[in-house]
Design a protein around this nucleic acid. Structure first.
Length: 716
DNA sequence: CTGAGAATGATTTTT
DNA sequence: TCATTCTCAG
């Protein structure tokens, strides 16, 4: 048992062996957070303070849950099955399946992913004849989810204006539709299980007594409802162990509420706030840079990372003339690194927004450097997979109109838009599902229901065989065989059969002797809750490209952080949002702390964005890195009052390619200084002589048109 | 129903 | 710029 605790540092040890009290662990980047979490569970079990059945550990991603489980089973010889370790959504699903009756759900309820939810909303608007220009489906989807994440049902939403009143009405209608169809969306999983426990005292007692220790990962990412859910489960006796880092809170835009950390500390009178500040990942200079950046934020719980590793290399900063130039430089640098024996997979290219990857990808592709982009379409989100799943869902639940609408005419079987509208009218009139209406309708529509019935006949087969039959019977296989570009899709469909097989092997329920296999239901939930691995070249030694958001939780020997420009990072939209800049800075902090050994920061003077050339100032975040930590790879931009940089011959060439000079010698792209607005870059010139005007991007101070004869501009 | 051309609009994202 | 969505002719 003591071997469990071997090698823990002092605060880690303190956290792991805390007595039965609420605790808040402020775990800095790279401070061994997951280790503390898993060792805490192992220690509680090993010291008989708790049985595996009494654990409740919550994460946000399936990856994190899996990792926790893997580490735990490596530490202790225990059966993982009885433990409740999973994502909020996964655990809620488990709860609702077990108590579907009490929760008011059909046994075989289906889960809508975001895309399904959106199409359900579109269908709703159409059926209610609501103008979708006035109530854009996406906006409505966001509105509904936001209410649910606050724990608000339609009756509880306060609506003052007509617009919101209407949206609440639509929210109500959406709920009715979901209930009728026997489907729940992601937020509903949470809200439904929260209400289940809140209303059903016996059930609540049962789980409160069972889960004596509740552990939460990435607590800073919890939303209002998730926190309420945790509080409800903890009750009076339960003990909450929350691990998080307020400095890494980067998901406010999707409802994460950092304030939960402070609230937790206050509401639970947490005596044990433990800070994990020793970092085991990065060299000193990188941590110093990260600490210096995040210090500019005001609202923090406070934390400072340190390391026993040496200072390491300086932060390298590169100023490119253009985005293309920046990409070319990155390619050259990577080639040099590869010559020095660095593995490509240990090099990450990070950027603020997805659009920035294109230029990088192009350069890497031309250079023949293998790379992998994170964050594309995932396996279960692919069109052909969603089609196959829709058939499977109809077998389980014919009332699922979303699935019905998706595949009733795919592959095409002569049921056009008009027929579907007729079905919808009939269904509405009869208060029935589309499936039921189709059975009544006769003709081709009824033929489709016969097809589903035929599939149902083989539903008792082992899951992989069932999936294979469905792909065949649906005509999907034939359809994609006939399609020119269908080969990949066919391969994916085969992969779906494999996925079903390995799902059964790993988590199969089996044994269920019914007309429907329990495996099918579990597999469908699995497909909805776990979008599957990102496809493509995982095995080979490829460069890692991703957004700064996706990089959270990962680490690399070498990190390139590109596009560090005002307007891009920090993103211009963030500057008008309430706490926007601070969130951007936390994102910067996350990005910087991904690097173990070497960190490159780069920005470009000009960049193509939305088909237009933009002239951006270097990001303020570069300036927030102490000058002493930086090694400039290009002459540093002149500071106000400083001496203009001497140009290298390469830069002189570039300067001569620069956009045309206008009256008075001003040119586009030139840095200037204004008494009131500060530093800026000329992005446009108009007119001549006395009328000459310049459009200047002053970054934080905004974009201005200034008359050159009036404004006193200095070259910066 | 399909496919071509126009219109649109474009942080960040897991479940 | 460019990917997605929409519209309309065939």
């Amino acid at each position: 048992m003591s071997s469990l605790l071997l090698g823990l540092n002092e605060p880690q040890l303190a956290a792991v062996t805390l007595p039965r009290q609420h605790a808040l662990i402020l775990a800095g980047a790279g401070s061994g957070k997951t280790r503390v979490l898993t060792t805490r569970i192992a220690w509680l079990i090993a010291t008989n303070q708790m049985t595996p059945q009494q654990v409740l550990a919550v994460t946000f991603t399936n990856k994190a849950a899996k990792e926790m489980l893997a580490r735990l089973t490596a530490m202790l010889p225990i059966n993982a099955r009885g433990m409740w370790i999973g994502t909020f959504h996964g655990l809620c699903n488990r709860l609702l399946r077990a108590h579907h009756r009490d929760a008011g759900l059909p046994q075989l309820f289906q889960i809508l992913d975001s895309a399904d939810q959106l199409s359900a909303i579109k269908r709703l608007l159409k059926s209610l004849n609501v103008d979708d220009e006035k109530y854009p489906p996406r906006e409505l989807q966001h509105f509904i989810n936001a209410q649910k994440e606050q724990g608000l049902r339609p009756s509880a939403v306060e609506a003052w204006d007509g617009y919101t009143k209407k949206r609440v009405e639509l929210y109500d209608a959406y709920e009715a539709q979901c209930n009728k169809e026997g489907v729940v969306d992601f937020a509903e999983l949470l809200l439904r299980s929260y209400e289940l426990l809140a209303r059903n005292e016996a059930l609540r007692r049962h789980y409160q007594e069972r889960f004596r220790h509740i552990l939460v990962d990435e607590f800073q990412d919890t939303n209002v409802l998730q926190y309420k859910w945790l509080k409800l489960l903890a009750g009076q006796e339960g003990c909450l162990f929350c691990v998080g880092d307020d400095d890494q809170s980067i998901y406010a835009f999707r409802g994460a509420e950092v304030g939960n950390m402070r609230d937790f500390e206050r509401e639970f009178k947490v005596k044990n706030v433990i800070r994990l500040e020793q970092n085991y990942r990065s060299h000193g200079n990188i941590l110093d840079a990260a600490n210096a950046i995040i210090k500019h934020n005001e609202h923090r719980l406070g934390k400072n990372l340190w390391t026993e590793a040496g200072a390491g290399e300086p932060i390298r900063v590169f100023e490119a003339y253009s985005d293309l130039d920046e990409a070319r430089w990155i390619v050259e640098e990577i080639r040099a690194l590869a010559r020095d024996g660095h593995a490509r997979s240990e090099i990450a290219l990070l950027y603020r927004s997805n659009a920035q990857s294109r230029v990088l990808e192009h350069a890497l592709f031309s250079a023949g450097l293998p790379y992998r982009v994170y964050g594309g379409l995932r396996f279960f989100e692919r069109q052909e997979i969603k089609h196959a799943l829709a058939y499977l869902r109809l077998i389980a639940n014919p009332d699922d109109d979303t699935s019905f609408a998706r595949v009733v005419n795919f592959p095409t079987r002569g049921i056009g838009a008009r027929s579907i509208e007729q079905l919808q009218d009939a269904a509405r009139a009869a208060g029935s599902s589309l499936f039921a209406a189709a059975m009544q309708a006769g003709g081709k529509a009824a033929g489709f229901t016969t097809l589903i019935a035929k599939m149902k006949e083989v539903a008792h087969l082992p899951l992989p065989e069932l999936v294979d039959h469905v792909i065949e019977l649906s005509g999907l296989r034939t359809h994609y065989q006939a399609e020119k570009e269908g080969q990949d899709r066919l391969a994916n469909l085969d992969e779906l059969v494999n996925a079903a097989a390995s799902f059964v092997a790993e988590e199969g329920v089996a044994g269920a002797e019914g007309e429907l296999s329990a495996d099918l239901i579990a597999f469908l939930a699995h497909a909805a809750l776990e979008a599957g691995e990102h496809q493509a070249g995982e095995g080979d030694d490829a460069l890692q490209l991703m957004t700064t958001h996706s990089a959270k939780g990962l680490e690399f020997n070498i990190v390139f952080l590109s596009g560090l420009e005002e307007g891009l990072f920090p993103h211009e939209n963030s500057l008008v949002e309430p706490k926007g800049l601070e969130e951007e800075r936390r994102l910067m902090y996350v990005a910087v702390t991904r690097a173990r050994q070497r960190l490159y920061l780069s920005h470009a003077q000009t960049r193509m964005l939305h088909g237009q050339t933009r002239y951006n100032l270097p990001s303020r975040f570069i300036e927030e890195v102490p000058a002493g930590l930086i090694k400039w790879l290009t002459p540093k931009m002149a500071k106000p009052g400083g001496v203009p940089p001497r140009l290298t011959s390469v830069q002189e060439q570039r300067a001569s390619h620069a956009p045309r000079a206008a009256d008075g010698g001003w040119r586009i792209g030139q840095g200037v200084r204004h008494a009131r607005f500060g530093e800026g870059v000329i992005v446009n010139l108009e007119g001549g002589g006395a009328d000459a005007r310049a459009q200047i991007n002053f970054g934080g101070a905004g974009m201005k048109w200034l008359a050159l004869s009036v404004a006193k501009l200095e070259a910066a």
